[in-house]
Each structure stands twice: as C-alpha cells, then as structure tokens.
Design a protein around this nucleic acid. Sequence first.
RNA 1: GUCCCCAUCGUCUAGUCCGGCCAAGGACACCGCCCUUUCACGGCGGCGACGCCGGUUCAAAUCCGGCUGGGGACGCCA
Length: 476
Amino acid sequence: MPSPSGNEAKMPPVATRFAPSPTGELHIGGARTALFNWLYARRLGGKFILRIEDTDRERSTREFVQAILDSMSWLGLSWDEGPYYQTERMDLYRREAERLLARGKAYRCICTPEELDRRREEMKARKEKPRYDGRCRNLPPEAAEGKPYVVRFKTPAEGQTVVRDLLRGDVTFENGELDDLVLLRSEGTPTYNFVVVVDDAAMGITHVLRGDDHLNNTPKQLLIYEALGYPPPRFGHFPLIHGMEGGKMSKRDAETSVMKYRDMGYLPEAVVNYLARLGWGHGDQEIFSLEDLQGLFSLEHVNLSPSRFDINKLLHLNAHYMKEADPERLALLLIPYLKPHGIEASPSPRLVRIVQTLQERARTLVEMADAAVYYFREKETDPKAAAKFLTPEIAPVLEEIADAFSALPEFSSAATEAALSEVVARRGGTLKIHQPIRVALTGGTASPGLYDVMEILGREEVVRRISSAAKRIRRG
RNA sequence: GUCCCCAUCGUCUAGUCCGGCCAAGGACACCGCCCUUUCACGGCGGCGACGCCGGUUCAAAUCCGGCUGGGGACGCCA
C-alpha cells in the first residue's frame, strides 16, 4: 500500500515500446523482445508503443515495415500507440542536437570516414580498444565551415556511469571507456543512440526492456539523457537467443524470421508460448496462452543466461496446439497449405472432418496438408507398401470387399467395419486385411482410422480405389 | 586486445534473493514397455545436470573470491 508521499504514488503509468528497424523481417529474437515489452505493459496496466527506427535509409524499406507489422499482428501483439516513424520526426532530432551543440555538450567533427577507419585499424593492430580519439573536440567552429561534418557527443572523460538494471542490478562503466559517439551523420540524419534517447524521452517511455546486446549502449544513453536534461527510464536487459551451436541465432541454426514459422505451418499461439518460455519460466508450467502470460509475466523470473533456440520444443508445442485447436479454425488455416499440392479446397463440413482425423497426427499445418492429400485425389502408391501389402493372394479379397461395400445399404463407418469382419470371418478369421485396404486407399501404410477415412472418402471412391488396386495386382 | 554480461540434465527450465524441505523437480529430445486395424495420440518407466578450486558455515546448487568456459559490445547499423 503506497503512502501518499511514497514513490509509488508519483510513479507515472508504465509505458514500454518495441522499436524495430525495418532492415529485415521480424526476427524471432525481436519477437521475444516485443512480447516481453507487451506483456510487461499489459501486466502493469500500462501502454505499449510501436516505433519504427528507420533512420538507416540505405537499408530500411516499406516492405519490411509491412512485414514487421504483419508479424506483430499474427502473434497477437497489438500496440496502443504508433507506429511512429523516426524519419517523420527529423526536426525534433535536429533541434535537440542543436541544443546540445549550443550548450557545449556536443561538437562538430570533420574527420572523414576513411580516416576513421584507418585509425580504428591501427588501434586494433596495437591491441587497443578502438575508439574515436577526440581530435576535433576543441576545433574552432569555423574549422567545420564548408566541410562535411558530423555532430559528436562530448562524453565526459572522468567519472563513472552506473546502469541500474532491473534484472542484473548495478552495472558500472568508466566514462573513460566510452566513446565520443556520432549523434548526427554528415547528411544530418541522427544515429541510433541519439534518437532512441530523444524518442524515449518524448514518448514518455518508463521502462526500456531490450536485448543484452544493448547493455553497453546504456551508459552512453544515460549520459545523453543527462546532457539533454531528461529523466532516464528504467532499463532491463535480457539475454539473447542463441542458435543450437551457441552464438547469435543465425539462419545456419534455424529459420530466424517469424513469418517463416507461419509459412512452415506453425500456429501463433505455439510461437508465443515457446518464446515466452525461452528465458522465462513459471514453476513447472509449460503451456501458456497469451492471456495466461498477461497475468503471470514478471521480470524477476527472466533468466540471465542466454538460451538456445530448440526447434524440437517448438514443434512439440505446436503439436499440442494443433490438437487443442478448434477444427473449424484449423480447416480455414489449412486451405493455403493445400495449394502447393494442387488442391483448391474451400471451407466445408467435409474439410472439418478431414482436419479432425489429422489433428493428433500432424505437428504443423504443412504436415497436415501433406497427410491430407489422399482425401482429395488418389495418390501414387508407395512401391514398398505395395510390395508388402498388395500381394497376388490379396487381390480376390479386395474384390470381395469392394463387392460387399457396394451392396451395403448405408456406407457408414459402423457398416464398413461390420462388413469387413464378415469377410474376414468367412475367410477363417485370421486374415490381415486392414493394411492392404489402407494402401489401396491412401497409397501408404500410415493414416487415420480406416473406417473414418472410408466414411470421408465415400462409397464410390472407396470401391473405385479398392477395385483399381485389385486390378493393378492382377496385371502384375 | 579492451570493456561488459552470464554459468543446474544434450536443450528449455524449477530451486538461488530469505543456506537445511534437493541423495536436485518438470518439459523437449532419446531409449524401452503398454494401448492399437497402420501411423500417431495417450499412459508407464529409463537415461541424464548443480563447470572447477578455495573460503564462510553445524550445513552450500544456493553466500564470497579466483579460475575456466560461453556470450555480447567496441560504426556516419540498430
């Protein structure tokens, strides 16, 4: 219970943000960052802001912006404000840079990129930490006239900056280790460490939750906050997601784009569940809906060590959600995955029935589509299956069964099962007939329950496929 | 090279803050068995970890130090 004079009472409502740069599709690691920020805001009744960091004009594209927005929506991560685009806020950044220049907190630097590169290489060769040597710090203002220049931050040479990390506690940096970083490029566009501060301050961000790779940037940003005279937000850095081989997750390990997982037939709830459990836990619980997560997520339970992306566990979770999912919804979702097989399906009760037979057998929508093909057209028979089950002595039995099915008053799974036992009984009761029929019907040895398959296929098609299998056997 | 972070089964994790309930629990994967018209699902069981060394303590996975190992950052990228 917060006292009237306590900090709690004055705490502004929580605001988090996700600030991707549209230089690629939404990365699986970025998606987790977005998820954690979204959850944190939701949990505390705050707002979640989306900001597109497109100041790198060379590499940012409209298409990537759209892909990121689509990925967020697919995952169910809605934003309360934005998307803001940094390229639309250039005036603000230039104004703030001017302010720093006027107060002597920043300076113009006329070193060329080539020169800088050269010096960096030299420093590396000398085994020093590569950094700007500050040679333009005290240049008279006229020196920059008529020349291209960048605006650099005047990092204090002395003292320490401590980052009070929400997850790791205090992390202390020597200011002397920090660089005079570039604030404005020679074309006048701002760089990351500068815009992020200006925007987070302007947007009232209270909590910056981001990947570990930004921990080293934080002291620089803190110093910029101070120079600008804005109160800094709280920071929390969680570990990166690694590939199975260790190291930043790359395409070598697994697909890194969220959209690709959708394309590979994963359900968004499985991806969300998996991402949440990667670096976070809640006792022994494994299954979490987005709604569960909103109520349970907390920074205290975020792990500090990097976790590896394990596609097997994602697959397992997806299989779980495939089983849980409403068959009508799955039927709708399945349609596009049928297209590559040349199947143009449309929503129907039959499609729902098909999905129901496949739900506990398919781990992804792609697997489900693969397994569903024989429901739509006769598949080529697997030669091994044919050799084993479509033997000459089985041909007359198949013919007998086809006849029995044709004579049935109604073609239900109960009826076909009864008819089949009758045939088997007539032949001595030890006949193994299921696999031959399965091969005749589906082209392979694995399928849902035979009677269900037959009911869905319908009498005409069942009789046709069984007879044609018998004919093929007789022809040799 | 310099700075920073991290360290429980192969992987994700519970336990670590407030040392004893932990001869370390769950999940994935893997291996067996059961169920079964096939394949799956499911059920049961197995395999499997506190990186190392020292310290504090009656007692350490839990606290402290060192070592080792892993990772990240050092751009006119974000």
